[in-house]
Write a protein that binds this DNA or RNA. Structure first.
Lengths: 214, 214, 214, 214
DNA sequence: GATGAATGAGGATTCATTCAT
DNA sequence: TATGAATGAATCCTCATTCAT
């Protein structure tokens, strides 16, 4: 289990409490700024200002903007894990697909609504294939978790197929999330439902007979 | 009759042939730069450089970066229309859904593969709901065309539902496009197929009985 | 009597009628732009646009921005002369000073109110002593005319004193004009009156006994 | 107690000594550039260059050119106050008007000769009525001080009249300053004397009997 | 650790002027 | 003549990052 800041080697093993507080403070500020302006347009100076510290202080803890986003993503993933358990969703084979996916989406959506930064961090690359490290890391993690989930749903499938399906699912989810966040109230709920529909119907034929509803 | 308008109103400028050529040249350069660096990171200076002209020349034809993107999107949409006709896809009620969607996706994908800028221009907003005008315009156009298509497929549906469905479809398509463009060869083909699967299965229950398979 | 465009030598002696019209058109446009944005901020492109011609056309008639202003000033001075006669004001020795100055100011003010460009062109230099050619020319002309007027009022005075007094008078007038143009209605009238007061009281002791009121 | 304000509110930045020095340095450079090229033509890059720092440094301390001018004007006003006391001139009712004004002008002139930037900052607007904030601020301050002075000289006058008179006086002074700075030696002195004459004679009838000469 | 100063290349945009057509 | 295209240096300003204190 590699420790969070992958980018800079040889960081003093245990950070001081004050340092941890600073880091948290900076990450919260970064989250706010990312949400407000988007990742690309966010400036490190703005983050420092938002955190109430000087730019120099920021760079004492993070080597660059990317690292902030990575750490932020990391922590979000951890929090998600802490909240929802190791697997994205428990996959009791008896659970109907609809229910399983519905629950998973609900959890994800709840999490994303509570942590709107997530969207900014997941936001796809400007150029297909070339992802910023930030997104890459978060992306890889998410794909892994979805693969885990799908693996248990598609027991016989080839790994490549599972991976591809995972990518599709994540893509659909991200696209849906954008739509959900862009709406409110009943319309938002309707979009959530549509995402579920898309995924359920897409996965239906892929997951063997277990999804038998009745 | 050379009118001499005293006010600063923008009159339909008479352009010279050279100007038209320059515009085409600039748009091509912009397309290349947008593809290389993404829309946000693209700089007007870089576009001018790529086009082999001075920054001033660029601004003789476009008031800013946004305008370039809008014009580029406009031209692409027109070209798409010229190539594939007014409706996104001909909707002969006899055509099975699978075939109709398959054809539509194939066309779209062909177009997008041939014009990779499209991806850069369609790329969603960094902040949900807040779209740059560029994307907004292109987005609106695309949504409209999908609504047209869906309208004929879902005759009884409420307009709001059609709109929502259109957004979902476009979202899925964009997500899929990103994946398609990120891969090559067989894997790319596999992704294309998956997109089709997603959409067909999603729309299946929505389009009445006409989608009768056999 | 050197013809107007001093800057470029060897212009075809007689300009075509079309050319004259163009020049008038350009000068009117320039006047409008100078009034709107001030001389410094006015761009030749803006003037051309306002005149409804291309930049190239503008440069066919004027070698640069300065020349436009100079010609404009020249024409204004000529018009002023045409309207009010060679001397700034007729100096009937019998006329009381108050009346003479009052009349002169009224004329000037009327002219300046009718031709607001005048202010823009008269506007002092940004750096004391270093005047743009434009203003220099206009300034010199005006000073000359005021000297003429003062000469008849201060018969025994040394030329240097007359010149100095002329500068003071013009300075006061310009300052006053700014205030007058910045106000309207009764307040404007009050400012006009104050300018008269300033000048009358200033000149009173200088102009011998003739100004005896009665 | 280093407060860490999360919002982007501008808190009173704690400046370091170095920063204060830089600010002084920049203001001096700005003064030099304003004197050389005038306010409008002065560029922030030129100021930074003159100060021997990079453009970025300038913007660390001032958000734009205007702010530099405002701060510069502010400091000058303060220095003036420190040097000459709160009232523009002490108005002992026993002092003859001539003396009072003579002293005031001498002080002002001395100050302006020593700080030639003042002229650049006071320089009127290119378009009557529309003043840059810089000048507006400085102007308002000066008008206020002149009003104070005049108020004691014209006890019975209506406020509007005092204000108008103050504007006239300032206008005359500015016009005179331009002339004074444009000349040297005896001629300069002569111009100073003329300004005094203008103002004394203008104010004479306005200030009751106190101005009794003998 | 923390601060704020410093950097300087690079961003979008403008403009007086020239030139080919 | 007239046009509009072309120029390119100059404008203001930003930002990730480093450094002295």
């Amino acid at each position: 289990m590699p420790d969070h800041p992958q980018t800079q080697k040889e960081q003093p093993r245990r950070r001081q409490a004050r340092g941890e507080r600073r880091i948290a403070q900076l990450l919260e500020a970064a989250a706010r700024v990312f949400c407000t302006t988007g990742y690309t347009a966010a400036s490190t100076n703005a983050i420092a200002r938002e955190a109430g510290v000087s730019p120099g202080t920021l760079y004492q803890f993070f080597p660059n903007k990317e690292a902030i986003a990575i750490e932020l993503g990391d922590r979000l993933v951890h929090e998600m894990r802490d909240t929802y358990g190791e697997a994205l969703a428990p996959v009791d084979p008896a659970t109907p697909l609809e229910e399983a996916i519905g629950a998973a989406i609900d959890r994800f959506m709840a999490f994303n609504t509570e942590h709107p930064v997530f969207f900014a961090l997941m936001h796809g690359p400007d150029i297909p294939g070339r992802m910023a490290e930030t997104h890459d890391q978060l992306h890889t993690t998410l794909i892994g978790r979805i693969e885990d989930l799908l693996g248990s749903l598609m027991p016989g499938a080839a790994p490549a197929d599972v991976t591809r399906t995972a990518h599709i699912c994540l893509g659909v989810y991200k696209a849906g999330l954008e739509l959900v966040l862009a709406h409110e109230g009943a319309e938002r709920a309707a979009y959530v439902q549509e995402i579920k529909n898309v995924l359920v119907r897409y996965l239906h034929p892929l997951v063997g007979d277990r999804l038998g509803r009745g």
